[in-house]
């Protein structure tokens, strides 16, 4: 299937069209927003505390008098960047280990999977929190740890996807030709599991976005005063009664991004004919 055919199949489903639109819109906004920002997102003002939406501040202002529109526009940038990098880490290590284990099999596979089982039984957010406790706050430093802990589920998916192929004739033929394991992995198995991994990558991205936002909400992620949706929601909760706009806009943005990624991933998995591993999110 060419990529144009796949895209057409995705967009022909209503959920796929909505999901892709939401994701593309969010990415465009994240990239372009610094160019069209109406106000300085961190400028505080004593006169403008908790103002209701108005012409100069269409989304209102927060408890420090900062413009919520500007902060909302920028609020996904850091989380999206970190989620993207952590997804890359998770996919690369998870897929490499998972595919290798499927190919090697036997005792090595059994023992390694027991360790993966044990690691997966600790909630991802707690693994990350141990490191926050020791290293202090700062999401950028957490990229390898986020990537590691979220990559555990990639190991299962990659291994399961590859197991369908390791006993096929073309793999046996490659082994008989004396190809190296790494070559078999890249030339024979990877092309066959590429679609499953792509869908899994999209799911990882959405779980990581959610995990990072949750960490920020708990005060363990993106550090204030940076504009970030999770932080903005945590910050605005105390004044929800008088200024609900302070939490509603970041909530709408965060939710629409995550729901959009899920809808798009769902549509892509249908278009590619991949069984979407529902899994349960790790955060």
């Amino acid at each position: 299937m060419s990529s144009a055919t796949i895209l057409r199949a995705v967009l022909s489903q209503p959920s796929g069209a909505i999901g892709v639109t939401l994701v593309v819109g969010h990415v465009l906004l994240a990239v372009l927003s610094p160019l069209v920002l109406p106000h300085d997102p961190v400028a505080q003002s004593a006169e403008l505390i908790l103002q209701a939406p108005s012409l100069s501040h269409p989304f209102g202002t927060d408890r420090l008098g900062r413009d919520i529109l500007s902060r909302t526009m920028l609020g996904g940038r850091e989380a999206m960047l970190i989620a993207t990098l952590a997804t890359l880490v998770a996919m690369v290590w998870g897929a490499t280990v998972g595919l290798f284990l499927a190919l090697i099999g036997g005792r090595t596979d059994a023992y390694a999977m027991r360790i993966v089982d044990a690691l997966s039984s600790i909630p991802g957010i707690l693994i990350v929190m141990i490191f926050v406790a020791a290293l202090g706050v700062g999401v950028t430093a957490l990229i390898p740890i986020l990537g590691f802990s979220y990559g555990l589920s990639v190991v299962y998916i990659a291994r399961a996807a590859a197991l369908d192929f390791v006993a096929r004739d073309f793999v046996l033929a490659a082994q008989a030709r004396g190809e190296a394991r790494a070559t078999i992995l890249i030339r024979e198995i990877l092309p066959n599991v590429r679609d499953s991994l792509a869908v899994q990558g999209a799911m990882q991205w959405s779980w990581l976005l959610l995990g990072i936002a949750s960490l920020s909400f708990l005060g363990l992620g993106v550090a204030p005063p940076a504009p970030d949706w999770g932080l903005m929601i945590a910050d605005g909760r105390g004044v929800m009664q008088t200024a609900p706009w302070a939490v509603l806009w970041p909530m709408a943005m965060l939710s629409s991004l995550i729901v959009g990624v899920n809808l798009a991933a769902d549509a892509f998995s249908k278009a590619l004919g991949v069984d979407r591993q529902m899994g349960v999110r790790a955060a």
Binding site: S206, S214, F217, G230, M240, P244, L254, S255, R281
Partner: peptide, 22 residues
């Protein structure tokens, strides 16, 4: 259900507080 399972718990929690408590 799909929306409920993808929405972050803290967003759901804050929304419920806003709607039912406030």
């Amino acid at each position: 259900a799909l929306v409920a399972m993808t929405m972050p718990e803290f967003v759901v929690a804050s929304l419920l507080i806003l709607i039912f408590a406030i």
